[in-house]
Simulated scan of single mutants.
Amino acid sequence: MLPLLRVHHIAIIGSDYARSKQFYTEVLGLRIIREVYREARQSWKLDLALNEQYIIELFSFPKPPQRLSHPEATGLRHLAFAVSDIEATIAHLTAHGVAAEPIRVDELTDRRFTFIEDPDGLPLEFYEE
């Protein structure tokens, strides 16, 4: 068996770096660990943490290609965040102009969840624990 320890990070490329940075830091509340502009690549790299744990690398690149991004599309399905109160989460998102899908209930666990999209349409799930 391969001795994997944990997921190290998730990398996301935004089409508008400033808009994505604002969304992930101000709307979702992730903490900036480090922000670097890489001149050779004409690219920003923003390392973000959740609860003091490194979790997301946010990148910008000149003219990145579009990617099909729906929860049921082939490939990465979505990124999910655990929350303690789904209604409070939706209220916070709504106050920041982010629309959430209607609350669904996981038929296997009876837990409630909802989806939103980041500024580039990446599906993000909020799963109530």
Rank of each mutant, 00 (worst) to 15 (best):
A73M: 11
R34E: 12
R67H: 15
A73V: 11
P62F: 10
E57I: 03
I55Q: 09
I10C: 13
E52K: 10
A73F: 12
L76V: 12
W44S: 03
S69E: 08
E57F: 04
Y24S: 01
R34Q: 15
K45A: 10
E35Q: 13
L30K: 05
Y17P: 02
L76D: 09
E57N: 06
S60K: 01
P71W: 07
E35K: 12
G29K: 10
D16F: 05
R77P: 06
I56W: 03
G14P: 01
A11W: 09
R38C: 09
A40F: 11
E57L: 06
S60I: 02
L30G: 03
L68M: 14
L68N: 14
I10E: 12
E35C: 02
Y24D: 03
E72A: 10
Y24V: 03
I32V: 13
Y24I: 00
H70E: 13
L46S: 02
S69F: 02
R34P: 09
A40I: 13
H9G: 01
S15P: 04
F23P: 01
E39R: 11
Q53S: 15
G75N: 09
R41Q: 11
R19P: 06
K63S: 15
I12E: 03
A11Q: 10
E57V: 00
G75F: 03
P64V: 10
I56R: 05
K45R: 15
P71I: 09
R41F: 05
Y24H: 04
Q66N: 13
P64W: 02
F59I: 00
I55Y: 06
E72Q: 12
R41Y: 11
I10V: 15
H78R: 02
L48M: 07
I55H: 05
K21W: 00
A49H: 04
L79C: 11
Y54W: 15
Y54M: 11
D47R: 06
W44M: 07
R31G: 02
E39H: 08
E72S: 13
G75T: 05
G29R: 05
S43K: 08
K21A: 02
Y37Q: 05
E26I: 06
W44I: 02
R34S: 15
A40L: 15
I55C: 15
A11Y: 07
K45H: 14
L79H: 06
P62S: 14
T74E: 15
Y54E: 14
A73E: 14
E52W: 09
